[in-house]
């Protein structure tokens, strides 16, 4: 949760569709596997540049990948 906003994401689902491991996704993003795990379990919300990178990688919009729980 960040400033009262709870962000949910579909990263695990999208990664599963591609058949990638966390390590594989991490390598494609240029981040550590721990960071991918923290993103997937919702412990960490990415910066905008990393969110764009994810959106490009999965061919989806940022809004599709990340949703505000309150919305």
């Amino acid at each position: 949760m960040h400033g009262g906003v709870t962000v949910k994401n579909r990263l695990r689902e999208l990664r599963g569709e591609q058949g990638w491991s966390q390590a594989e996704l991490a390598a494609r993003l240029g981040v550590s596997r721990q960071t991918v795990n923290a993103l997937e379990v919702g412990k960490y919300d990415p910066s905008l540049p990393l969110a764009f990178k994810l959106a490009r990688l999965f061919g989806r919009s940022i809004e599709y990948i990340f949703t505000d729980e309150a919305a």
Binding site: G30, Q34, T35, A38, S47
Partner: peptide
């Protein structure tokens, strides 16, 4: 050289 979470 670390990613954003590691830097945090």
């Amino acid at each position: 050289g670390q990613d954003e979470l590691q830097q945090k």
